[in-house]
Amino acid sequence: MNPIEATFERLRRSRRTALMPFLTLGYPDRDSALSLVPAIVNAGADMVELGIPFSDPLADGATIQAASQRALENGMTLRRCLDQATILRRQGITVPFILMGYYNPLLQFGIQSLASEAAAAGINGFIIPDLPPEEAGLVGRAFEDEALDLIFLLAPTADESRIRIVAGYSHGFVYLVSLVGVTGARNTLSLDLMDFVKRVRALTDKPLAVGFGISTPEQAGLVGGVADGVIVGSALVKEIGTSPKPETAAAAFVAALRAELDREA
């Protein structure tokens, strides 16, 4: 069993919700992840989603766009993302790592090389927001050979047949986009979210993790009540970007999310 699936399984048995914070690699400084990742894991992250910066992140809102831009200016590359993962593994961080990145930089790296080098760096899965299942044949085959999970996103606009297709192809878990829109912190959750999670739940046994717009421990708690995992991205990136002590701020925010999720459980 792949570590991502195993983590969901272990949490399910203890009736807990997976907490998956998202960081943009290379932000705010090029090597920030080397201290941020241990901080958020100690604060209670069950898995970590690591963003590969891209010049044209068209599914992202202003916060992650700005973080990506800054990371690129800091000299962040896909190669360095893999190197940082390797270093973190050597430091003894064992939680699953999921890389999130747009397709073009991955394609230019070479899909076969990426699969083998990512696996060697201790990466467990990928989220590629501009690669729907229809276009993912090449990537899917290369990742399967290396036991990397290719995780697909499902949007609330999906009908039953689309849910079946996407959930069928998704490995590790299914990433449910909580709202109709781009990433970014929101004050409120979409009213249709609970219904959306239920619709998907009825059609697949795979773990369901919800992301996009989840900004506060209260919102995370509500989502944790229905989903198997909660992904918090922009709100955490914002905390990191606005604090003079990014590790402390990140750890405090993740700990607050963890506490609320465990209280709900």
Binding site: L58, A59, Y103, P129, D130, L131, P132, E134, E135, F152, L153, L154, A155, P156, T157, A158, D159, R162, V166, V177, V180
Partner: peptide
């Protein structure tokens, strides 16, 4: 060619 777009746009 192809359709390299976020999932949310596929139905559209």
């Amino acid at each position: 060619g192809g359709r390299f777009i976020p999932e949310i746009l596929i139905p559209a």
